[in-house]
Design a protein around this nucleic acid. Structure first.
Lengths: 351, 351
DNA sequence: TTGAAAGCGCTAACAA
DNA sequence: TTGTTAGCGCTTTCAA
């Protein structure tokens, strides 16, 4: 509680900073606003001495160019919107970093929104970003369909879908084959002898969850030809550690007792592992666990978490590249850049 | 590689979306631009039927208000800049979430920049955000001093320092007592019988690192009165898992062999743990490990990581509250909101 | 090489 | 209740 002081504000403090415009700079330098604009944008065409004078004036006045005016005049906004499902999830921050690594060097600053899978929040973010005239948006759609992005499409805002295929090539997209990933996870457990599995899934409104489920089912079908296997599906409200932890009792209540569990992402798996640990259930002896995303943290647990790896950083940077192409290349064609998931087997599933 | 097709673009595609302005809406609705502006901003003062007509026109034209023009006219930007040291670190994303939770409901959209502790990147972000006329910025300064923020100060951009005390009450700030935290960590090891410690620190240009070191030293001094203790300090280039892993050999080379290690943050500690595991060093028997930040992931390791907890989410939301006050309250006074670190003892330090 | 001035899209004061 | 219009800060054409 550090109140600065108790008396009235001093003059220095009460004195409002008056925004300095190009006109102020012009006045100080004794030139016209056009000239100031020229030294700012096309320094080559103005005389050396004038330029120095203007630069000095910029310095002394503390002038900072007003992007809004620049944009209004037809300039670019140098802004890209990024909308993800959950900033708390390292998978998405890695993706963000990937995008940032590519976009920052091009002079863009990123607006970030985290929707928690809520379409209403998504709509708010997208609307706000459109109002700010972002040059493009990278988005992991919250909804099952893409109607929330229709506005972006019709208004021609370059948009790249993150971790979501665009139907009918309406957008560029970067994807990972989640059906395949889900299949890899479940098949791995079947192949190591498991017969009764649980699949802990997130909300099936989330596309990743639907696809991974489909993959799991696919593994069931193909394995069933050889021998009888079964998967119980449990759906939780969100892909978080807490939800994973809370689902453990339901897993343990299943009869016959499953011997393996596939989680729709690593956060969920981490929660499950934690819940199992507190209940004294041994992993992988009593229950094998497989996650999804291959967060670095999973590899450090003991037992280390078996998981399906996705190249998050590369997803982000690839998306950014696609966006840049769409922004700059008049001959741009929408493309899907597809990555393959990779099963990383660790101790949590291999006794 | 999904090229849409090979022929020339269809008419529908080549047809550029022509930005629709308030004038277009006015024309469609058969009213003046002033009236459109009124239904958008002060709907109460316009007649019901006209309002409906205008709203319909807004809908049919797909009009999206141009914030730049609005701002230029004197409106607010509804934008806040957030600058952190490392988005990959869950500590900072939690802080971001805290800020977002408070700011989003107030209609702000956040610009996020991750500096990796580089003052040059920080300067770029701050400059870009100022050009965009953000209404305020939340920042974890990269540099040891605050000269990089002088511009924000003189230009009167409301600024709240994240996890950094503002000297001379120049800014609002949210802080955690890192000296105390460092002291807690080291003292804990001393009190559990350790004598030879290693302190794995990040760059001392980072204030958090300097303070935590100071705390560690303080613990050494006070413990030294009773018995002889020693701390070897190792500084690494960044606070990441990789750097922690790479420093392990240097730790093990120290003679006499230390029995405990304090890490400047959890990512570092996670790396150290991983490095120790691959080299077969037992934790905590051979070496006790203490981290800093209490990331959720640390609590799930086995052995679970002892750490110094910081309320990241609360830091973020408190900072946002301070910022809102500075933005809206004419009687605003700069304040420091201070949180206390808390040692959380787990298996990694208690054999 | 520089200056004058129009105009980007919007809001708000004022007039009708 | 609605329309007209000046002007926000900047860039850029055109003229000097």
């Amino acid at each position: 509680m550090n109140s600065k002081r108790t008396g009235p504000p001093s003059t220095a403090e009460i004195e409002e900073w008056v925004p300095v415009t190009i006109r102020d700079v012009a006045k100080v330098a004794g030139v016209s606003t056009g000239t100031v604009s020229n030294v700012l944008n096309r320094p080559a065409i103005v005389a050396e001495t004038t330029r120095q004078r203007v630069l000095a004036a910029v310095e002394s006045t503390g002038f900072i160019r007003n992007t809004q005016a620049y944009q209004l005049r037809g300039g670019r906004s140098h802004t890209v919107g990024v909308v993800v499902l959950d900033v708390s999830n390292p998978f998405f921050t890695e993706m963000f970093r990937g995008a940032e690594s590519c976009l920052q060097s091009e002079g863009y600053v990123l607006m970030l929104g985290s929707t928690d899978g809520l379409t209403e929040r998504e709509a708010n973010f997208v609307r706000a970003m459109e109002e700010h005239r972002v040059e493009g948006v990278l988005i992991t759609p919250a909804a099952a369909d893409l109607v929330g992005l229709a506005g972006l499409k019709t208004r021609g805002v370059p948009t790249v879908l993150l971790d979501r295929k665009a139907p009918a090539d309406e957008f560029c997209s970067v994807t990972v084959d989640d059906v395949r990933g889900g299949e890899l996870a479940a098949r791995h457990l079947f192949e190591t002898g498991h017969t009764e599995l649980v699949f802990v899934n997130g909300p099936t409104t989330v596309r990743q969850c639907r696809d991974r489920r489909q993959g799991v089912r696919k593994a069931v079908r193909s394995t069933s030809k050889a021998r009888k296997v079964e998967v119980t599906e449990i759906s939780v409200g969100a892909l978080t550690v807490r939800h994973g932890e809370e689902v453990v009792d339901r897993i343990l209540a299943i009869s016959p007792r499953p011997t393996g569990v596939v989680c729709a992402n690593d956060l969920l798996a981490l929660g499950v592992l934690r819940g199992l640990a507190t209940r004294g259930v041994k992993v992988p002896e009593d229950l094998a666990v497989v996650g999804y995303d291959d967060l670095i943290f999973g590899s450090m647990l003991s037992p280390a978490l078996t998981s399906v790896r996705q190249p998050a950083f590369e997803l982000g940077s690839a998306a950014a590249e696609l966006l840049l192409d769409e922004v700059r290349n008049p001959d741009h064609r929408h493309r899907e850049v597809r990555f393959e998931p990779e099963l990383v087997v660790r101790a949590s599933s291999s006794g």
